[in-house]
Design a protein around this nucleic acid. Structure first.
Lengths: 345, 345
DNA sequence: AACCAAAATGAGCACGTGAACATTTGACAA
DNA sequence: TTGTCAAATGTTCACGTGCTCATTTTGGTT
């Protein structure tokens, strides 16, 4: 493979020297024109621009980077692009990158096993990047002892703080704290929590937020129900909740907090299928605000993460001058629609 | 205290020359060790590796690229990452890149106005990429006359053929051809088509596929209904279709082909809300297979594009040796569930 | 010991650029 | 004319690497 493109050196585009020769100026003058520096006569500039046009001049990236030391690009290592949150975060990163005229160099860590941060970091650092963002979807096995590559500012997308790297994530814990308080304030002291899968870090933090908040309010937490993020798993839990409600009694729940919107949708479908009304009989809230445009008449009260904000902050931390290390939790916003009823008094 | 000695030389990491000096060998020997070349004594290799470790050596990308000419990276210019299809395509590209040990350098073309291919190409070519993929979501104003940058193989994600670049896309036209024939074969000669927004290229091709197929079967096409991809717009059209069905008569439709799954979902909700049954009264098909896991009890018969396949092909075309120019349309697969009833005979 | 091929290692160049420094040009006042 | 100064342009260097070619060392054979 490497033997082939040595011959086709033809494909290399013209150098500044060739442009200079054609325009009858020095190479440095070409450099000045390219970089928009002052002190070039208008006549000369035009001649150079014409020569560039004629030769299809493309400033050689490597040459410039070799001299300047900056690549104007940050690395992004993703574990699984498909997950809902990652996409919006990626978008935030891309947007911030565009504003700074940076590119984003992505590497996917494939396979199903969680990757070590050291692997990702090592693979990324041999690329032309000025900083890097590591997305740690699942618990990385070497999270605690990970040492970032010297000279490349490294940001980790994670709820956990790290001794050597700035970490950023949506406040997963705070999200359920907020929603639980919201339900409590509306008089729902008996709620059910439908959790995500056990191996998900987000799921764990959301559950902890719910449980701790109930604890602080001195409210007993009913046994948790566990789904797998899918609408169908939510439906299954919804059937069990419907049975509890129909059974009545002081233990009957009046509200459901689902750890994501798809499961909330499933819960609602199951409740309504059992003849119950949302929110008249049972209130339901979800998390993620992921249904907009996807389902007709979306009326789910939910929570919106500022994922683009997370991406933006991550980018800025990755290129930032400040060497301070922080653990940033980006707060979320309540989106009130009409699946929660106030039953106080 | 160990993490402090990171930035030794002006923020730049150690060079091969420094490693060589520390190991007491020539710089060339270091180069050989780094690149895994033969003819290096085991003892020497170990000494060099130790020196690399001690200095935290990171091979300078620019230097290597300047000499070698290859960056092992392809550029990807996206218009709008969020759109459903783009994400899966991106995933396919990333996966193929990983298999070839390539990175993907992304640039987003922001704003709401369609971008010129020339702009994207120019911005991308100053990055360290060996080839590029341009995603032309909407009609680029300069599509016809676009000339790719010399020396950088350029692939366009588009249904249209291009005189100078290989183009690749899912077969949008063929998708509706397939679905229309499917409905016809099940006895539905009177169907309604719910189109996407007028400015979408995909939407136009899907509509054409439907219309042409009906024409070839000598079946008159009922007036088209237009949505905007959202479930709510599908619901609105579904209400109109329900009215037609309830009115009865020979003009009453027996099936609906919606140009995407969200609109199909809206149509179904509206039909059922009007007391009609799917598929007993009306059959419904969608496109994209986008509802899996998102809604409970997904039973929509739909069409699945091989978006990962598109991404993979695009990547391979972008790094391929072959200079042939093709227009590739990747076929799709029918996903039969239970929203279509056979009414023949 | 003497020799020699092969293996291991080293020396020097070229890649394309930006910055520092050096030189030329041109305009204007004395 | 001459001198002066700033603007315009040219010259040189260094960045870190891989490749070609030259040189040294190694290990085996005569």
């Amino acid at each position: 493979m490497e033997g082939m493109d040595q011959q086709t050196r033809n494909g290399r585009s013209a150098s500044a020297a060739e442009v200079a020769a054609l325009a009858g100026v020095s190479r440095q003058t070409v450099s000045r024109v390219v970089n928009g520096m002052p002190n070039v006569m208008e006549k000369t500039r035009k001649r150079v621009l014409a020569a560039m046009e004629e030769l299809g001049f493309r400033p050689n990236f490597a040459g410039a980077a070799l001299r300047g030391g900056s690549y104007r690009s940050i690395g992004l290592c993703m574990y699984n692009i498909t997950r809902v949150g990652n996409l919006a975060t990626l978008e935030g990163i891309m947007q911030a990158a565009r504003e700074h005229d940076f590119a984003v160099t992505m590497i996917e860590m494939g396979g199903d096993k969680p990757y070590a941060l050291a692997d990702a970091s090592r693979r990324m650092v041999e690329r032309p990047v000025d900083g890097m963002i590591l997305n740690m979807n699942r618990m990385a096995p070497d999270f605690e002892e990970f040492v970032p590559q010297p000279g490349v500012r490294t940001v980790i997308l994670s709820m956990y703080a790290h001794p050597r790297c700035t970490t950023i994530d949506s406040d997963q814990y705070g999200s359920c704290e907020l929603l639980t308080n919201y339900l409590l304030e509306h008089g729902h002291s008996n709620m059910r929590f439908v959790a995500g899968p056990e191996n998900s870090i987000s799921s764990r933090f959301r559950e902890a937020g719910w449980r701790d908040t109930l604890g602080r309010a001195h409210v007993d937490a009913a046994p948790m129900l566990r789904g797998d993020w899918s609408a169908d798993s939510g439906y299954a839990m919804g059937e069990r909740i419907a049975a509890e409600v129909l059974a009545g009694g002081s233990q009957a729940p009046t509200a459901v907090l689902a750890a994501n919107d798809q499961m909330a949708l499933g819960v609602i479908a199951a409740l309504e299928n059992a003849g119950l009304s949302v929110p008249d009989d049972v209130s339901v809230v979800g998390i993620d605000d992921a249904l907009e445009g996807l389902v007709p008449h979306n009326r789910l009260t939910t929570l919106r993460f500022d994922l683009r904000g997370v991406g933006k902050l991550a980018f800025e931390a990755a290129i930032g001058e400040s060497s301070s290390i922080e653990a940033i939790h980006v707060p979320s916003t309540l989106v009130e629609r009409s699946t929660v009823r106030d039953i106080r008094g």
